[in-house]
Simulated assay, not measured.
Amino acid sequence: MQKDITYHQPIIKYHDGHFIEQTDNIATEFPLTLYVNQQEFATIVCSPTHLKELVLGFLASEGVIFRQADVKDIHLDDSKGFCHITLNRDIEQHYGHYTKRMISSCCGKSRQFYFVNDAATSKVSMTTTKITADEIFRMMKALQEESTDFKQTGGLHNAAISDGKDFYIHRSDIGRHNALDKLFGYCIQQRIPIRDKVLIFSGRISSEILIKASKIGVGIILSKSAPTDLAIRLADDLNITAVGFIRNQSFNIYSHSERII
Rank of each mutant, 00 (worst) to 15 (best):
L199W: 11
I216T: 06
S250M: 08
I194V: 15
G203D: 13
R191F: 01
I246L: 02
K224A: 15
F245W: 08
V218I: 09
R195L: 04
V218K: 02
L238Q: 09
K215C: 14
Q190W: 02
S214C: 12
R247H: 09
F245P: 01
V218D: 04
L210E: 14
T228Y: 02
F245K: 13
V243K: 05
N239C: 12
L234E: 10
H256W: 06
I220D: 00
R233N: 14
K212W: 10
R259V: 02
F251S: 00
I209P: 09
E258G: 04
T228D: 13
I253C: 14
D229V: 02
K197W: 00
K215I: 08
I188C: 00
Q190T: 04
K212P: 09
G244I: 01
F251D: 05
Q189N: 10
S214I: 11
R247S: 13
T228L: 10
F251L: 05
I200H: 05
Q190C: 05
R204W: 11
L234G: 00
K215G: 06
L199C: 12
I220C: 06
I220V: 09
S255D: 10
G244Q: 04
L238K: 11
I253V: 15
E258M: 05
D196Q: 13
S257P: 01
I260V: 11
L234V: 07
N239I: 00
N252P: 00
R195S: 14
G219W: 08
K197C: 01
K224H: 04
I188G: 03
F245D: 11
Q189F: 03
S250A: 13
S214N: 13
R191W: 03
S255W: 13
G219F: 12
R259E: 02
I246K: 01
R233T: 12
I216C: 08
I211E: 12
V198H: 01
I216L: 15
Q190L: 06
I240Q: 01
L230F: 05
I200G: 03
L238F: 14
Y254S: 04
N252Q: 15
G217N: 11
S255L: 08
F201T: 09
G203M: 08
Q249D: 14
I216R: 00
I200Q: 02
G219K: 09
R195V: 07
Q249N: 15
F245M: 15
H256Y: 08
A213D: 11
G244L: 00
F251W: 10
A235Q: 02
S225P: 01
I194P: 08
P193D: 13
A242S: 12
L222I: 15
T241A: 05
I192E: 03
K215E: 14
L234K: 13
E258C: 06
L234C: 09
I246S: 01
G244D: 08
E208V: 12
I188A: 03
L222D: 04
I194W: 05
P193R: 06
Q190I: 01
D236R: 13
I211N: 12
A242Q: 00
F201D: 03
K215V: 06
G203A: 13
S255Q: 10
G217D: 09
V218M: 10
A242Y: 04
T228K: 06
I192W: 05
L234Y: 14
S207Q: 07
